[in-house]
Design a protein around this nucleic acid. Structure first.
Length: 268
DNA sequence: GAAGGCCTGGAA
DNA sequence: TTCCAGGCCTTC
């Protein structure tokens, strides 16, 4: 599932591929994936591409913003040729100057495209309420945010309003590295352990970005290549296998309605 | 804070 | 044929 490292990888590839591009045309094959009105294509220059949590944002000349969310199965592909036929599950095509064609594809349609968030309940609840991502706060601030809440630590890591960018994979992997059981409550953990979790989270996210993210099922790079961080997962998707640290059997339970993988011996 | 719904493909 | 995966929103 595209989380912070996958989106960040894509942002970096998009910056290289769309540098200096101007928006020439937009084709919407599935209008329902778009929320709000997209900018009228009139040669506006794409000024910046930024990541906010798991969202990607295009800033255009003139102030227009287009936000993308990949949901679970979202993909973006950039090609130099206009594909003659619409691919299955391709929902939108953005044509840029210099024969650059950007396709947004999303099998399960949990993702979507948003124009600049000015109103609407969904936007208020989502984009506008996003918390800082782990790189934007210090370990002390991270620990303080978690300490304010009463829920299970895994559920809190997944709460985008608290801390953004973390999804199921990196929640499980960071809790494993920090040695924290996913059902612990931050209130009952020492500040030092929460600060270590922040350090481990940042380290794992950085390593994942360096490896181009994790491709479990659908995530792909702009050119269709897979990420390589999935080979380094220690617990996610490893239920029934021996822990790489202590050889205990990795377990899978449900926390916050999400599959949750952990080592019963290393994580307390 | 828990649970249902959206959506589709693939596994059981 | 049914169930499951899950990010995020809505509803209770």
């Amino acid at each position: 599932m595209p989380e912070l490292p996958e989106v960040e990888s894509l942002v970096r590839q998009l910056r290289r591929g769309l540098e200096g591009a101007r928006l020439a045309a937009v084709t919407l094959w599935t209008p329902s994936v778009v929320h709000g009105a997209l900018p009228e294509p009139a040669g506006q220059k794409l000024l910046r591409i930024e990541r906010r949590g798991k969202y990607l944002r295009f800033d255009f000349e003139g102030g227009a913003e287009v936000w993308f969310h990949l949901g679970m199965t979202g993909q973006m592909f950039l090609s130099r040729e206009k594909t003659p036929a619409r691919e299955t599950h391709a929902h939108a095509l953005f044509e840029f100057s210099g024969r650059r064609y950007l396709v947004f594809r999303d099998i399960r349609r949990f993702g979507g495209i948003h124009s600049r968030p000015t109103s609407g309940a969904a936007l208020k609840a989502g984009i506008l309420a996003l918390g800082p991502d782990p790189f934007q706060i210090t370990a002390a601030e991270f620990a303080a945010l978690l300490k304010k809440r009463t829920g299970l630590i895994k559920a809190l890591l997944l709460d985008q309003k608290l801390v953004s960018g973390i999804g199921n994979i990196y929640a499980d992997e960071s809790l494993f590295r920090a040695g924290i059981h996913p059902k612990r409550r931050p209130r009952a953990l020492s500040r030092a352990r929460l600060e270590k979790l922040h350090a481990d989270l940042c380290a794992i996210l950085s390593e994942a970005i360096e490896k181009g993210g994790s491709s479990i099922n659908d995530y792909r790079h702009l050119n269709g290549a897979s990420g390589r961080f999935q080979d380094l997962h220690r617990v996610y998707g490893k239920e029934g296998r021996p822990c790489r640290s202590c050889s205990s059997v990795i377990r899978r339970i449900t926390v916050a309605a999400r599959g949750t993988h952990f080592c019963p011996r290393c994580q307390t």
